[in-house]
Design a protein around this nucleic acid. Structure first.
Ligand SMILES: [Mn+2]
Ligand SMILES: [Mn+2]
Length: 535
DNA sequence: TGTAGCGGGG
DNA sequence: TTCACACACTCCT
DNA sequence: GAGTGTGTGTCTCCCCGCTACAAG
């Protein structure tokens, strides 16, 4: 429940606000996970609870800021009466270290260029990065820390990694952090009040959580690998991701990481590593990538065998379409043509839309936001229906299995009965407008609220027959992971009709996901076409 | 001196 | 900092 | 026509002030 009155933009929060939120977080983690917390986390929790409110307040501020090191002169908070006393207390509780605890470059980065010049006048680099590097290279670390401490005393959080893990446990994912509290209390973020099963928790064992946390750091390593390829590191990651996980959330993340790693390896032409990564991943698009690599390497037989395997049992539609057409010439999809009067000044889609609308035709460039959004509005309560294990904390914008292939199977009755309610326009309108009125602004992975407004939604439901919407919903619900991409760029609405249009500029072509959608449109005779635009 | 980008804040 | 998309390029026929 | 590499938009809020950095 969002207490709107708790915070207002640009008005100071209640004095104990941040501290209380941190204590709430710690209480939540303790309640759910006290049995599997490692010693570091336990001692952090105990220490924070033990210090005075004044120290709790300062520590909570530190936690929400980007650390782990802070200059004392950057700490002024109305609710912290005596910063010096708070710091001393936190130091005594081993939550922070004073004038120590970080590498030289970390504290140097907190100084301005002119401060750096003042303290280290012999270094003459121009840019800050170079300045810091040069100082680190020239002076021993202890000297740097001491000299900075003298002019600008600072503190460092002792266990930032433990704080990170506590946050991760509480919010269940790296995308939410303490700022979620503020945003929710401001009313910026709102979450569906779905039912949580207290007996279910996201991580059953410490190993589960450790893997989850490890996967997150692999993600950042992968990002570094993109900048600078390192075979040893890449192979280490593959090694660590070698065995499939029994937990599905972990397994999906594992596959994603391996596929990303394969892609990076391909980019630097390390085909051995790429093949290994893809073969361990084994899930789409891994087999397709393997075939492309084998073809590049001249192993036509291996590629052929791979293609046969895909054709025998395609994992996803795009994979089937790929294997279908690979090496052969695909029959070109019929395209219409449009010549614009002038070169588009923004994107081609907007220019095309402008050329196509007139006094009786309106349209939007929405792509997947259209199909996903209307689906989300029509199936709101089905998406948030209480399914065992789907919701594990109050800050989710989707059930954990939204994009899993068996999303529908798990909810098959609810989905069937909802589809039956939507077959006529009145039923569809009833659901959609109920959601619009009662849930507007609530976070939902399917619904981009800003993309819609009431009049447009109204016409959307009037001009597109409910039977067509149902065909689309039915198709999407079979596997949202697949159908969430590739929807055509534009929808045009006119009295008694509509049209979906995929805009293609010169030299742009249908992607595999878009092909899959057009296959569906053709099968059900929905009005969709590809428009080749030139100028 | 102008400005884009970032960190801090509610 | 992700992800889907558009677009520019190459090689081939 | 097909495949590949790479740039781009958006980032789920919006405001403020400061700073790095480069241009004048
Ligand atoms: Mn598009
Ligand atoms: Mn397009």
């Amino acid at each position: 429940m969002a207490a709107m009155s708790l915070l207002e933009p640009n008005h100071p929060p209640p004095p104990h606000y941040y501290a209380q939120r941190v204590l709430d977080l710690l209480a939540g983690v303790t309640r759910q996970y006290s049995d599997l917390l490692p010693a570091t986390e336990q001692s952090v929790i105990a220490a924070v609870r033990a210090v005075s409110p004044n120290a709790q307040r300062l520590f909570s501020r530190l936690w929400t800021r980007t650390g782990p090191t802070f200059r004392l002169d950057s700490l002024h908070y109305a609710e912290v009466g005596d910063v010096g006393a708070a710091v001393t207390e936190l130091e005594g509780a081993r939550l922070v270290r004073v004038n120590d605890g970080c590498p030289a470059d970390t504290i140097l980065a907190r100084l301005t260029v002119s401060e750096l010049r003042g303290l280290f006048p012999r270094i003459t680099e121009r840019r800050k990065r170079g300045l810091v590097d040069a100082i680190c290279a020239m002076y021993p670390e202890q000297l740097v820390l001491a000299r900075v401490a003298d002019a600008h005393p600072f503190i460092t959080i002792v266990s930032p990694a433990a704080l990170d893990r506590l946050q991760l446990l509480y919010f269940g994912g790296p995308e939410r952090d303490l700022s979620t509290f503020v945003l929710e209390d401001l009313g910026v973020l709102r979450f569906e009040p779905y039912r949580l099963d207290p007996a279910r928790r996201q991580f059953d064992t410490y190993e589960d959580f450790a893997r989850f946390a490890a996967f997150r750091s692999f993600g950042t390593w992968l990002h570094e690998l993109a900048a600078r390829w390192d075979v040893t590191l890449a192979q280490y990651v593959i090694e660590a991701l070698w065995a499939p996980n029994t937990k599905r959330i972990l397994e999906r993340r594992r596959v994603r990481l391996l596929n990303r790693l394969g892609r990076q390896a391909e980019r630097v032409r390390d085909f051995d590593t790429a093949l290994t990564a893809y073969r361990r991943a084994a899930r789409a698009p891994a087999r397709e990538r393997v075939i492309r690599i084998l073809t590049r390497l001249g192993d036509a037989d291996g590629a052929r065998r791979g293609l046969d395997q895909i054709l025998a049992a395609p994992q996803v539609a795009t994979e089937r379409l790929f294997a279908d057409g690979f090496g052969r010439r695909r029959p070109a999809l019929a395209e219409d043509r449009l010549v614009l009067a002038a070169a588009p000044c923004e994107n081609v889609e907007a220019a095309t839309l402008a050329a196509l609308i007139d006094h009786e035709t309106i349209g939007r460039h929405l792509e997947n936001r259209l199909s996903l959004g209307v689906l989300g509005l029509a199936f709101w309560d089905v998406v948030f229906a209480s399914v065992p294990g789907a919701f594990v904390n109050p800050y989710q914008d989707r059930p954990l299995d939204l994009y899993w292939p068996d999303f529908r199977g798990v909810r098959c009755n609810a989905i069937q009965s909802r589809l039956a309610m939507l077959t006529d326009q009145a039923g569809l309108r009833r659901q959609v407008s109920w959601t619009w009125r009662n849930r507007y602004g609530v976070s939902n992975a399917l619904v981009a609220w800003a993309a819609f407004d009431e009049p447009f939604l109204e016409r959307l439901l009037r001009e597109v027959p409910a039977s067509h919407w149902c065909l689309v919903f039915d198709h999407m619900l079979n596997d949202l992971g697949q159908s969430r991409t590739g929807f055509p760029d534009l929808i045009l609405l006119r009295r008694g009709g509509y049209e979906l249009i995929e805009v293609k500029g010169p030299g742009d072509q249908l992607r595999m996901e878009q092909r899959a959608w057009f296959e569906f449109f053709r099968r059900h005779q929905l009005p969709a076409r590809v428009l080749r635009v030139s100028w």
